[in-house]
Amino acid sequence: MGDTDGLWGLQEHLQALTIDELRTANWQRANEGVKPSKQTKPPKAMSRPGQGRGRDKNSPERIAKRKAALERAASRRQALARGEIA
């Protein structure tokens, strides 16, 4: 899947493009003659460096946001239990 720093060269990009095209071609053949409402979902493209996967799920900012959301939810549950809000 490329270097550890997330940079791909031409060969990696061409290989990913080839995989995407083969997935699409196989999906088209599998759904040939099938009603559009009964077709399977088209395949997703292979992930590439820099396409939304760069965020760290356990970064300090995300942990702080998650903690704040849990605290808001807990205080709302307490207010509901006390009958302060409906």
Rank of each mutant, 00 (worst) to 15 (best):
I85P: 02
L17C: 09
R48I: 01
G54P: 03
A86I: 09
K44S: 02
R66N: 11
H13K: 13
A64N: 03
T40E: 05
A68Y: 08
A25I: 07
L70Y: 12
N31Y: 01
K67R: 10
R77W: 05
E61G: 09
N58Q: 02
R23A: 08
P42Q: 01
A79G: 05
P42Y: 01
M1C: 10
G2H: 03
G52M: 01
A74L: 12
P43D: 00
R76N: 12
D5R: 10
Q78C: 11
N31G: 00
S37F: 14
R77F: 04
K44L: 02
R29Y: 11
A30R: 09
T4R: 15
D5G: 05
P60T: 03
L17M: 11
A86D: 15
H13S: 10
K57S: 11
P43H: 00
P60I: 03
V34R: 05
K57H: 12
S59Y: 00
L70G: 15
P42G: 00
E12H: 06
Q39H: 08
L14E: 10
P60L: 05
P36T: 06
D5L: 09
W8K: 00
G50V: 00
R62C: 03
Q11P: 10
T18Q: 12
S37L: 11
Q51P: 04
G52S: 01
A68T: 08
A73S: 09
L14N: 08
R62M: 07
G83V: 01
D3C: 12
I19F: 10
N31E: 00
E61N: 09
A25D: 11
S37A: 14
I85E: 06
A64C: 02
K44G: 02
T40Y: 03
A16S: 03
K41Y: 03
V34G: 04
N26T: 03
S47F: 08
L14Q: 15
R82Y: 06
G83L: 01
T18D: 14
G9C: 06
Q11S: 13
P43T: 00
A73D: 11
P60F: 04
G52Q: 02
S47Y: 09
Q78I: 13
G52V: 00
R77T: 07
L7V: 14
I63C: 06
I85Q: 07
S75E: 14
L22D: 15
R29G: 07
T24D: 14
N58R: 01
G6Q: 05
K57C: 07
H13Q: 12
E32T: 07
V34N: 04
A74H: 14
S37I: 14
E21R: 09
